[in-house]
Design a protein around this nucleic acid. Sequence first.
DNA 1: ATAGGAAATTATCTTTTGTTAATCTGTGCC
DNA 2: GGCACAGATTAACAAAAGATAATTTCCTAT
Lengths: 196, 196
Amino acid sequence: MIDEEKIAFYLSKFKTLQLSDLFAIFQLAKMRKLSAGDVYIKDGTTHRKLTYLVKGLIRVYNVNDSGEEITIQLYWEDQFFASRHNVILHQPSPYIFQAVEDTELLEVDYDEMQALLDANPQYSGPRNYFTLQMLTDSMERVESFILLSPEERYLKLLNEKQDIMSRVPDKYIATMLGITPVSLSRIRKRIASRHK
Amino acid sequence: MIDEEKIAFYLSKFKTLQLSDLFAIFQLAKMRKLSAGDVYIKDGTTHRKLTYLVKGLIRVYNVNDSGEEITIQLYWEDQFFASRHNVILHQPSPYIFQAVEDTELLEVDYDEMQALLDANPQYSGPRNYFTLQMLTDSMERVESFILLSPEERYLKLLNEKQDIMSRVPDKYIATMLGITPVSLSRIRKRIASRHK
DNA sequence: ATAGGAAATTATCTTTTGTTAATCTGTGCC
DNA sequence: GGCACAGATTAACAAAAGATAATTTCCTAT
């Protein structure tokens, strides 16, 4: 469960929210625990949920025609996520959501959540905050593909998310950067040889 | 100005909105007209505005160390946009927003707009809708960089946004795809030779 | 109609990445 | 300890992209 410290943090961050507003959400929520390796959302299924990641690490990936796993995204503690294909586009997701570590999730039905948020103005600010957070993260990532070389993208990721990166194999990082694991290995070698 | 047809469209799309709710926004808004080539937001400046593009085309670009212009994003009719560095990060934007065509914009002060939206629950749904729209666009773009080759990205863009693409030079498209104009030209040649 | 300029293409060469396969390394398990 | 296995590295070659410069095409202003 979310601990008191985190609840206090959110209450102080969003002045419009009362403890009772958080409880209203918790009443819709179901706690789920996953073991490392468990699949959370299978590709091709329907899963209209909004999920808050309490503890652990989720990897979103795709299996391409050659049978290789391409990691699209990682989610970690205190992030919200959903399967955009399911939730926005009303389509089955082509991606697999899998726990990389033992993971704890808080899950709410997406439509119930939307109804609650639409109906109560005190949620408007926080809701907007989290969506904007996701949007800026995504935009920044787009810009990294346009403005940076693979090597620069890797260094930026190392710099900003070193703690997260150390929790997953390099091959996940490589495909997230849009390159192959072999290429990432060469980049790492190049960087190492330069700093010596 | 936004025409009656568009107003009717938004009113029917968002049932919580009354005509008076739209007027409340219009009262905050200022109409601006730009000629082709005009700079809308200069890099290094502060511009805390939310903008609705009524007519025309805006290009967001960056000038790199070699003096080359790298196009990051295009905005066209009926899209909302803002400078995320200014508005979210409270920093000057490193990007230049420039009108590619003669352009008409509706501009509102970002903080005034947030206050209005936060205070009135009827805006919560529509606000969320537009932010989610931007988010899914951005996420889809990220995924295109991870899952597709430059050639596939180009074909996808042609397929989905042909009308917009025909309004800008190829070199804008190339850098938006994360490649050089020279490379895009080779890709076009490769595609043409295959279809013959 | 034509001259000037920007955009696009082509050419050449270098660098990087992809592909495939082999090798090395570390870790958990019996 | 040693075996099995996944992940990382290395090697070798092919394919693609970057950089630079020359050339061609297209558009626009006069």
